[in-house]
């Protein structure tokens, strides 16, 4: 992929090895994403109070919490849409700062937004390549002449890889079903998300069968070694897909649960704060 240069503010190795390895994570492996001490306030409202978080290669991590716990703020910060008041983000051990979501994307951090962020009037391939269009070679390149054939072919290949079936990548995105559009958004994120894919409520608008399909997508992404951070209210789904679940409560990480050691009820009690009375995170 082109445009791999790092934006300004990168310096190497500051958090390397500093992260406490989670029990299931491979010890000594560098986290794909490491977040340290992130705080964010909007005026007098403290949205995040020193959040630490790591995501390791090939993991599917759930991020859960009640409304207002700070999930969206955290995702927006990791995807470059918001800038934290304090704290650091590292990608594969290199400290980075993003001033826009574009810079985060250039480092391989892709986000599937709740609204999918698709242009309904553009074809499937155009949606996948928007902002990173391929030009033909030769003098027409100067005019930004699109290499439609290559883009269509690559888009088809990207969707095939994630086992998404679309009749034609030339169809307009707005003409597809909700599940197919979801699949394109995920497919696009996977195609470009060389490091990590963030998914914000990817199944909120879907029927049961299509939720299943997205679940398979998530697993196939992780199977290619790209970790996924899944933000969802759908606890059974989170429990099914994620080996590890991080719970946010009032802007802090209160639990980092291994699925194998916990039940859905455990997660619920952390989300509501009930567990805080008996355990200390």
């Amino acid at each position: 992929m082109e445009d791999q240069e790092l934006p300004g503010g990168t310096d190497a190795g500051s958090s390397n090895g500093a992260a406490p390895a989670p029990r299931s994570g491979a010890s000594g492996v560098v986290p794909t994403i490491a977040v340290r001490g992130i705080t964010k306030h909007f005026g007098s409202v403290q949205a995040l109070r020193g959040v630490d978080l790591e995501i390791y290669p090939g993991e599917v991590v759930g991020l859960v919490g009640d409304n207002g716990a700070g999930k969206s703020t955290l995702v927006n910060i990791i995807s470059g849409g918001l800038q934290p008041n304090a704290g650091t983000i590292s990608v594969e051990g290199k400290r980075v700062t993003f001033s826009s979501s574009l810079e985060a994307r250039r480092l391989g951090i892709e986000t599937v937004y709740q609204d999918l962020a698709l242009a309904p009037d553009l074809s499937v391939w155009a949606n996948i390549f928007l902002g990173r269009e391929r030009s033909v070679k030769g003098p027409l390149r100067w005019f930004g002449w699109l290499d439609r054939k290559t883009m269509a072919k690559e888009a088809q290949a990207d969707l095939d890889r994630t086992r998404i079936r679309i009749d034609s990548v030339n169809s307009l995105a707005g003409r597809l079903s909700g599940g197919q559009r979801q699949a394109i958004a995920v497919g696009r994120a996977v195609a470009w998300g060389s490091k990590v894919v963030l998914m914000d409520e990817p199944t909120a608008a879907l029927g049961v069968e299509q939720q299943e399909r997205v679940g398979q997508l998530v697993e196939s992404v992780a199977g290619q070694g790209v970790p996924v951070l899944l933000i969802s209210h759908n606890l059974p789904q989170v429990y099914r897909l994620c080996k590890r679940v991080i719970v946010l409560f009032q802007g802090q990480v209160v639990a980092n649960l291994q699925r194998d050691d916990s039940t859905v009820d455990d997660i619920v009690s952390w989300i509501t704060g009930a567990a805080l009375g008996t355990k200390t995170p």
Binding site: T111, A117, A119, P120, L130, G131, R132
Partner: peptide
């Protein structure tokens, strides 16, 4: 024109 927000997110 189709989706200004997604165009912005795509880095345009």
């Amino acid at each position: 024109g189709s989706n200004g927000l997604s165009a912005r997110r795509a880095g345009i």
